[in-house]
């Protein structure tokens, strides 16, 4: 849907970065677009990802992974260059089940960046973020070279 910035080299690089993560690839995440500092991913509906076999609703773990990936990429959008980071925490509120058979979009924004930390928020939806399936907030920590506190163990991604 939102393909405003798809022409830029950065967006191209960003799009190519997604499948470099094996789990993103396994889940089938697709870079859908960027709107300002919001980054949008989608997960095509697949039988394998269903959590409730009676209804065909996708598992919450799929939404968690989608928003974790979208939030992480939203942090990269605000950095001059990518640097390693780890998810420190992530909270999800599930507002309604995803509709069986439909792709889910996940959009996320990094709304505060410090030397060590990135604060993110996001939501999962079908048609519009105004009708969310789930809302997420999280904090990421930069790790390794350049991070202020390399002694701290971390590294989810």
């Amino acid at each position: 849907m939102t393909e405003k910035n798809t022409g830029s080299p950065f967006i191209q690089r960003w799009r190519e970065f997604i499948p470099s993560s094996p789990y993103n690839r396994a889940m089938g995440f697709v870079g859908t677009g960027v709107e300002g500092d919001w980054c949008i991913l989608s997960v095509p509906y697949r039988e394998e990802l269903v959590g409730d076999p009676s209804t065909g609703v996708l598992h919450g773990g799929v939404i968690t992974a989608l928003l974790d990936a979208a939030c992480g990429l939203a942090v990269f959008l605000r950095l001059p260059e990518m640097k390693p980071m780890a998810t420190l925490d992530l909270r999800l509120d599930y507002l309604k089940p995803a509709t069986p058979g439909r792709d889910v979009l996940g959009r996320a924004q990094c709304y505060k960046l410090t030397h060590d930390l990135a604060f993110v928020r996001g939501c999962a939806y079908h048609d519009t973020p105004d009708e969310p399936i789930a809302m997420a907030v999280g904090v990421y920590m930069f790790i390794g070279k350049g991070a202020a506190n390399p002694a701290q163990e971390g590294g989810k991604r």
Binding site: S21, Y23, A26, G61, L66, P84
Partner: peptide, 21 residues
């Protein structure tokens, strides 16, 4: 397939989260 960052390598936060749920 559970890896998030292949350079570290570390499990994807979403994989760990989905597993816990």
């Amino acid at each position: 397939m559970l890896i998030g960052n292949p350079i570290l390598p570390a499990l994807h936060g979403g994989a760990t989260g989905g597993f816990l749920e």
